[in-house]
Design a protein around this nucleic acid. Structure first.
Lengths: 134, 134
DNA sequence: ACGCATTTGAGAATCATTAACAAAGGATGG
DNA sequence: CCATCCTTTGTTAATGATTCTCAAATGCGT
């Protein structure tokens, strides 16, 4: 729908047709996607592409912070991410995923004081209905 | 460690030795647990217990709201839950899981206004170090 | 105790993901 | 343009958690 430009392979890796095909398929994905979906889509441009390579490409992007595995709610999937702190609005109707910088996390200081818990990271996912599915 | 009392089978299901064994194993679990762990533990009292039955018991409790699958961070696992709104503090060192009612959820109105997103639920998991592992 | 719907165990099936490994192919210096 | 070498790839098998199948066993209301 609205392919974002900021999706690149990390430096230090080779540019291959398979990676480009996978990257393009991910770049043009709307909302959440599965490895199998990317596999199907990318084979339109790279017919000999293997599923393992799709997983490898996703892993590259995940390490680069551009893709994040999306937990919970049935089938496994991934979402594109911009770097930096943000969370996800997951539409339970159409599966689209939007990012928001709004954060539902209580401050770490409060967790430390009340529970003695030193929070490193947190994950927040909102589930509901997006604008179009309303 | 601190077995909670509020862990019961839903009404309308039969009380069997296998379910009781699974229930007890879950009730005495500290923090996160896997199906395999419950399986091993419960077989001490019900040697003929099958792994599938453990999954069935977990599913019963999940539907009752007493157990929740814990997403992310490597290995799959479950946590006991009390009913009602709360989130989890997951210790990445020892695996213990504590509940907190602290929640700074952005008001649904804010999500609706800024994104047109009607949020039904949200999930927040904190990953860090607990008091004992500090 | 009876009867029957529920529950169970064992193992096969599924599904996503990873691992292994030999073959293919970029990138670089000559 | 070419040889070299290290990266990358595809195929296939392996893994690991979970679910399914189905006949046999068993709660529990009557």
């Amino acid at each position: 729908m609205r392919p974002r430009a900021n999706l690149r392979l990390p430096a230090r890796v080779r540019s291959t047709p398979q990676r480009r095909a996978g990257l393009d398929a991910i770049a043009s994905a709307t909302g959440a996607f599965t490895a199998a979906e990317i596999y199907d889509r990318a084979r339109a441009t790279a017919p000999k592409l293997g599923l393992a390579t799709v997983y490898r490409t996703i892993e590259l992007l995940r390490r680069a912070g551009s893709v994040r595995p999306l937990a919970g709610e049935g089938r496994p999937a991934y979402v594109r991410c911009r770097p930096g702190h943000h969370h996800h609005l997951v539409c339970v109707a159409c599966g689209s995923v939007e990012e928001t910088e709004l954060c539902a996390a209580p401050p770490a200081a409060e967790l430390a004081r009340r529970y003695g818990f030193a929070a490193d990271t947190h994950e927040v996912d909102f589930y509901g209905t997006c604008r179009r599915c309303a």
